[in-house]
Design a protein around this nucleic acid. Structure first.
Length: 353
DNA sequence: CATGCGTGGTT
DNA sequence: TAACCAAGCAT
């Protein structure tokens, strides 16, 4: 059992997957697959990009809204930037949304509206890296690509008891994942390892008692599974501070600005702010601003505290930054979360005149 | 190869 | 509750 051939391990896993595969909107159910139905590369791609560093629970609703609104890659490619950024609002890592659009347009412009079918061809597209290219090639086209995400890293580290810490151990874990990748059903294999990692071989308290690889797992044999994979310690998050100015005009329009394409919250709608390094900054408009409170929000690598100031502007007001967006065109759901929090705080003080 | 880049759920 | 974590990519 301990030194079972890779093909046997793969067979055990696929048998487990056939009984335990999670149902998701972007997956083709087993019975349809048996009947020859292939996954739509557009839907596979969209789901994989949304799932980058993001939970299945968070993605589900976004995926359904996107596919309802833009059923094909051509539909998405024809969308306005602001529509897509607004629909992505709240999902995070907004560079994904910008790359999503760039990728859709590249597929239409350079590939006749058809996604490249190979890992190699997919790798050249915006927002598609080693993981996503392999996942699409395997799931949508049954290419025996080696799919390595955080789940696979964890499962391999435990199965083979790899003690070396990430990210250094990545190459070795990829090699081990490759040994296990079958020529037959590589897409199901990839999804099976990820389902195993998400439901049984979980980070904290793995359910080794019901694992299809029980008896073959070297970490479990030694009782060290919960401590693998090892990871380098992360740096503490500093606290940054800033000011946010939220103005509303007499007709109900909100003063907003489109953030720069690159960097934090790039391309998203927001309110005018100072820099976020404690330094000052100028208000976007000369008004009798009133401070109403603060918003706290934590990003990937820092905590942010924003003092929120509100002001009422007359119809003649001409802002130095940003623009007044009519009340009926302003949708809080289009805002990234920190801006939505600020809006929640400010809306009471700025209720329509 | 290290860093920047969101968010919400779990422990 | 602060820390950790999730189907990574671009630079």
């Amino acid at each position: 059992m301990r030194d079972m051939p890779a093909s046997d391990l793969s067979a055990l896993l696929l048998a487990w997957y056939d009984r335990n595969a999670r149902v998701m909107p972007w997956r083709v159910p087993p019975e349809q697959k048996m009947a020859g139905v292939r996954p739509d590369p557009y839907r596979v791609w969209l789901s994989e990009v949304m799932l980058q560093q993001t939970t299945v629970a968070a993605v589900r609703a976004y995926f359904l809204r996107f596919t309802e609104r833009w059923p094909t890659v051509a539909d998405l490619a024809a969308a306005e930037d602001a529509e897509v950024m607004g629909e992505w609002a709240g999902l995070g890592y907004y560079a994904r949304a910008r790359n999503l659009l760039a990728c859709a347009r590249a597929v239409v412009r350079d590939h006749g509206g058809v996604f490249p079918a190979t890992r190699e061809g997919l790798l050249g597209l915006p927002g598609i890296g080693p993981y996503t290219a392999a996942a699409i090639a395997a799931i949508a086209h049954d290419e025996a690509a080696v799919v390595v995400d955080g789940n696979v890293e964890r499962v391999m580290a435990r199965l083979w008891r790899v003690e070396a810490p990430l990210p250094g151990a990545k190459a070795e874990l990829t090699r081990l994942a490759g040994l296990l990748t079958p020529e037959d059903r590589p897409g199901d294999h990839a999804q099976a390892v990820m389902d195993l990692g998400a439901t049984i071989c979980t980070p904290r308290n793995p359910a080794c008692g019901i694992c299809p690889w029980r008896g073959a797992c070297r970490a479990e044999a030694e009782g060290v599974q919960a401590s693998l994979p090892r990871k380098a310690a992360k740096a503490a998050k500093p606290v940054r501070e800033g000011v946010l100015w939220i103005a509303r005009r007499a007709d109900g329009a909100w003063l907003v600005e489109r953030r720069a394409e690159r960097g934090l919250l790039g391309g998203m709608l927001g309110f005018a702010g100072s820099g976020w390094d404690g330094g000052g900054g100028d208000a976007p408009l000369s008004l009798p601003w009133q401070e109403i409170g603060e918003v706290r929000h934590t990003f990937t690598h820092f905590h942010l505290v924003l003092r929120v100031l509100v002001g009422r502007a007359g119809m003649e007001a001409v802002p130095e930054r940003g623009m007044f967006l009519p009340g009926d065109a302003f949708r809080p759901a289009d805002l990234p979360t920190v801006m939505r929090k600020a809006h929640d705080l400010a809306k009471g003080a700025l209720s329509p005149p």
